[in-house]
Design a binder for these strands. Structure first.
Length: 383
DNA sequence: AAGACGGGGCT
DNA sequence: AGCCCAGTCTT
């Protein structure tokens, strides 16, 4: 038994109550200072799959470095990624620059003002196009994100699986009926604000002002919405990492491939191994009574069998373990230390001293390895 | 339609 | 440990 579509009177009443609440309670966020499409665009891209608290600092830094579309269009990729470092989903940053160039070339440097043209920009999908169109240009377009789907599914008792692409149109149809023609941007932001602060995933019920509009509250079923299939758990992948140093105290870094995970970012050399091999190696340094890796144990017969073709002298001791979870993968990494000549240059490699690491774009997992290495590596140790 | 694509915070 | 977050692109 699902709730029917609201009549005109209820829609009017909802708009009034929602917008009143929003104007009273909205958070003061830097990108809400004005409705400049460039600012709205950058903030919306940063906010994809990312929390407001995380985004704020990145947003300020980004606007400082790239204040206009033109600055972004001519940005150096390395500098752009450095500003984005740690935010994740790095194709978002690369697509921003591509889109900035599209705006320069196809739209004469002016941010496009129709949904179709906004949608044509690289990295802008239905959600972001709707957000920019409504907030910056006052167009009555829905902006359907995870928050909005949760809120609307509770208000209307939507039982279709929101993880299915085909369900999108249900939300689109409802929102096109209830969106304010006078203030579509505020209406969209108000719905997201409700999702972020009031009708949160764990919220048992809506506040009183919203309850008259909420199917889930009326049926004491907040936790039943939204309906969503579970995601598969990340697949385990096992690596050995080599921290390799030369006589000049530089470290060997490899640039990751052009495409795919962490594309073009720098990393210590990694070698994938089977889970069996990984566990065997790890077991060798394990102390059974404590169930911990014994970092001080030197294993004379168990030099790391990594990068076997490489002219590296490996220390017969490893430096601990790092794990890192991506949305679809879980990396397990055992760290080893070795030395090589500085004229050794594998594919896509560079030697760089640690004091210059701040200028290199590292993904989080590489930063974790550096940290673990510092915790366990003792300077001047024999190999 | 399904999987790739990061990282952090909350329970 | 599992879930969620102001999603989009590729296959």
């Amino acid at each position: 038994m699902k709730s029917k579509m609201w009549d005109e009177e209820k829609i009017q009443s909802f708009q009034t109550v929602l917008l009143d609440w929003y104007y009273q309670n909205k958070r003061n966020l830097p990108w809400r200072a004005d409705t400049n499409p460039y600012k709205v665009w950058i903030s919306e891209i940063m906010l994809q799959q990312t929390r407001v608290d995380t985004v704020i600092d990145y947003y300020y830094r980004f606007m400082e470095e790239f204040p206009t579309i033109k600055d972004l269009a001519k940005a150096d990729e390395e500098k752009l990624l450095k500003v984005w470092q740690g935010l994740g989903y790095y194709s978002r940053a690369r697509n921003l620059r591509v889109a900035a160039r599209q705006i320069q070339e196809k739209f004469n440097g002016e941010f496009p003002d129709t949904v179709e043209n906004i949608r044509s920009l690289k990295g802008i999908g239905p959600y972001t196009a709707g957000a920019i169109a409504s907030i910056s240009f006052g167009l009555p377009e829905p902006a359907i994100d995870g928050n909005v789907m949760r809120v609307i599914s509770r208000l209307f008792g939507i039982e279709e699986d929101i993880s299915k692409a085909s369900t999108y149109k249900i939300f689109d149809q409802i929102l096109r009926k209830i969106i304010s023609r006078e203030n579509p941007g505020d209406m969209n932001q108000a719905l997201m604000e409700v999702g972020a602060t009031v009708s949160t995933p764990s919220a048992k019920k809506c506040p009183e002002w919203l309850q008259p509009f909420c199917y889930a509250c009326a049926h004491n079923a907040h936790d039943k919405f939204p309906v969503k299939t579970k995601k598969a758990k990340p697949k385990d992948v096992y690596y050995l990492a080599g921290v390799i140093e030369n006589k000049e105290h530089e470290h060997l870094l490899i640039q990751r491939p052009e495409n795919g995970l962490l594309a073009r970012m720098w990393h210590y050399p990694l070698e994938e191994v089977s889970s069996e091999k990984y566990k065997e190696l790890k077991q060798f340094w394990y102390k059974e009574d404590t169930n911990q890796i014994t970092l001080d144990l030197v294993a004379e017969d168990m030099a790391p069998e990594i990068f076997s073709e490489w002219p590296v002298v490996w220390q017969k001791r490893h430096l601990g373990e790092v794990t890192h979870v991506f949305s679809h993968l879980k990396w397990h990494i055992l760290i080893f230390y070795g030395r090589a000549r500085s004229d050794f240059f594998p594919e896509n490699s560079q030697w760089i001293e640690e004091s210059s690491f701040s200028s290199v774009v590292f993904p989080k997992v590489q930063q974790k390895i550096i940290q673990q290495f510092h915790k366990t590596h003792k300077v001047g140790q024999d190999l």
